[in-house]
Amino acid sequence: MAILSKKDSKLILDPLADNNPITIQVLGICSALAITAELKASIVMALSVLFVLGLGNVVISLMRNIIPSKIRIIVQLVVVATLVIIVDQVLKAFAYELSKTLAVFVGLIITNCIIMGRFEAFALGNGVWRSFLDGIGNAAGYGVILIIVGFFRELLGSGTLLGFPVLGNPIEKTGLYAIGYENNGFMLLSPMALIVVGILIWVQRSRNPALIEEN
């Protein structure tokens, strides 16, 4: 990447792999369980978090020198909540359909620990541009995991991707179903999201043994 210095591009690339917020830091698990039963919801959530975390990090970084440290957590909460409500209201007025799809995510975004975590750990101590990159990088790392989990849960649980039947029709027994394949309804339940995330962590750690902690 020529546009970004080596240090800056690390901010974006690290959270995608070796410092992933979900698989390494184990943050944001709650929303990863709640909305990954289908791919579309995962993508929408990933984009929403990308927007809020990118912008939120910038706002917090701009204010970093005037925020009193005693109430910094409250200030951070107010910033996320305000951003999310502004987006929600504007969408309700100008893109009503989209706002209805997003309504369920509003609460999940405000309480997402990745967002508070990045404000606290990064934006409070770094400049605007670097905070923005950090926000985008972490949101992307979070989004990638969400999309992978959503992909497997929807494919194996419902036999569809983004709502399109890709494995044939389970009722008329076409495609894969003709040879006796069945959808695994268990994939639709939240515990399977944890198990899929667990498998991802396993794969990632066995590919990169440096990530395994010494006991």
Binding site: I66, I67, P68, K70, I71, I74, V75, V78, T82, I85, I86, Q89, V90, K92, A93, F94
Partner: peptide, 28 residues
Amino acid sequence: YTVLFACLMVVVVGSILAYLASALSGKI
């Protein structure tokens, strides 16, 4: 300073949201 900051923040955020809500309520 802390108390003043908190008050100011509430006033600013409150006015932004109130303005937005009244400006958009017809459309919503």
